[in-house]
Nucleic acid binder design. Structure first.
Length: 415
DNA sequence: TCTGGGGTCCTAGGACCC
DNA sequence: TCTGGGGTCCTAGGACCC
């Protein structure tokens, strides 16, 4: 019974660093969409006091200058591609890989007990670094929750941490704050503190399981069992998404309905592409727009939803529905700062039920598929609905964006 | 005065994650 | 001037059914 967790160190920063080797050893931060706030920090940046998730960028500019921090806008095209490379390599080290997020994956290592797991972890690290340029940490233990902890401890040693005996595990848990356990957030940590529990070890040993179930629900109870080495969270197949969203802050306050329509159409298009990519259809969507919550002005938050007669993944249909909702929620006079489209009630294309009373033949699957093909070959948005507009006055800021070195021939690295 | 019992389905909201 | 985005799971409670 062994599970490994491989996690890329400061992933976004590391991706940028691969193509800018001159930034080695220098503090790096990566900004969120719209250059709004800091979301990723290199080790050097953490060492000089950065690291607070979502700290507003403009409030840190002084410190950034002072420490000569290298700043990047986020470049998700690059990060996604680098992520795929890392994950593809990781498949070589396990019969079963669960990609948990863009920068981490669980490896089933059942039956590897006779291996020298520390050496195995070191090999994984070395190979990934050599081939992709991304440094990773490897944690190995009995359950997912424990391997998460092992992974965190790996960052403070040489990148690999294995704990498989009860002694090794208890020793680690005694110094591990309950708040830092995977699955225990601030609300649960507060409740556990009330019971006098502050370390992972105390949580593991706490005997009143019924109370834990009551206070932290099933989720919290499973975490407790996992700390005890009992597997509750299995390796999972990566399943199709149940909700698909595309939401953005606008670069400026937006008053014009026309501009909102363009933004909403763009979000809807993006959602529909993701939907088709996973061979699904949706039965409903919701749309929201709201004013700038940070300003002391009259606020308005509008949202509404739409239900389709039968499942669809047709971009045109989805845009029309989203606009219909926008018509209902738009109030003139407000400066909108944020908006989004969320698709829900998603099922596999094969399970789509046609509606007896509403057999809509306009669902143009072929058209959407051809558009996808063209956009895949010639670049995103080569062809799009005119509804999305051209100028994108609402567009976000990205003043420090790097090139798409690995996915676009025109932006390939020059040496 | 007193008001059954056993279900299912859906949704909103909380909590958590990266 | 400026404040991110995209997900999952669980539970309680309402609506509804027989």
């Amino acid at each position: 019974m062994t599970i490994g967790l491989v996690d890329c160190n400061s992933f976004y920063c590391s991706c940028e660093r691969v193509f800018k080797p001159e930034t080695r050893g220098r503090p790096i931060i990566v900004l969120s969409n719209n250059d709004g706030c800091a979301i990723a920090f290199s080790r050097e940046a953490k060492a000089i006091g950065f690291g607070q998730m979502c700290e507003p960028f403009f409030e840190t500019e002084e410190r950034i200058k002072k420490h000569k921090v290298v700043v990047f806008s986020s470049n998700y095209t690059l990060y996604d591609d680098m992520s795929k490379r890392v994950m593809t390599l990781l498949k070589n080290y396990t019969p079963e890989l669960e990609v948990y997020s863009v920068d981490e994956a669980f490896l089933s290592l059942d039956g590897y007990d006779h291996f020298d797991l520390v050496e195995y972890g070191k090999k994984i690290r070395k190979d990934i670094l050599k081939i992709t340029g991304i440094p990773v940490g490897v944690g190995i233990s009995k359950t997912k929750v424990l391997s998460k902890i092992a992974n965190k401890l790996s960052k403070k040693s040489k990148g690999v941490w294995v704990m498989n005996t009860d002694k090794e595990i208890d020793e680690a848990l005694k110094n591990y704050p309950v708040r830092d356990i995977w699955g225990i957030g601030s609300a649960s940590a507060r409740k556990l503190n009330l019971l006098g529990i502050t370390t992972a070890y105390e949580f593991k040993m706490y005997k009143n399981e019924n109370l834990i179930q009551k206070m932290l629900t099933k989720t919290g109870r499973e975490v407790q069992e996992e700390l005890r080495g009992v597997r509750c969270l299995e390796m999972e197949e990566v399943e199709a998404k149940v909700n698909i969203a595309n939401t953005r802050s606008f670069g400026k306050d937006t008053y014009s309905k026309r501009e909102l329509q363009e933004a909403i159409a763009t979000f809807a298009t993006k959602c529909a592409e993701k939907l088709r990519y996973q061979d699904s259809v949706c039965y409903g969507l919701s749309v929201f727009v709201h004013t700038n919550a940070f300003k002391e002005i009259e606020q308005y938050y509008g949202s509404g939803s739409f239900v389709f007669g039968s499942g669809t993944s047709d971009t045109i249909k989805i845009i029309k529905a989203a606009w219909h909702v926008l018509d209902q929620i738009y109030r003139p006079g407000f400066g909108y700062k944020k908006g989004g489209v969320i698709l829900n009630h998603i099922v596999s294309k094969n399970e789509n039920q046609l509606n007896l009373f509403n057999q809509d033949p306009s669902d143009n699957e072929k058209l959407s598929n051809v558009i996808d093909l063209i956009n895949n070959r010639y670049g995103p948005r080569t062809i799009k609905s005119a509804a999305c507009g051209i100028n994108h006055a609402w567009k976000l800021r990205a003043d420090y964006i790097t090139k798409r070195y690995t996915t676009n021939w025109n932006e390939i690295l020059t040496v």
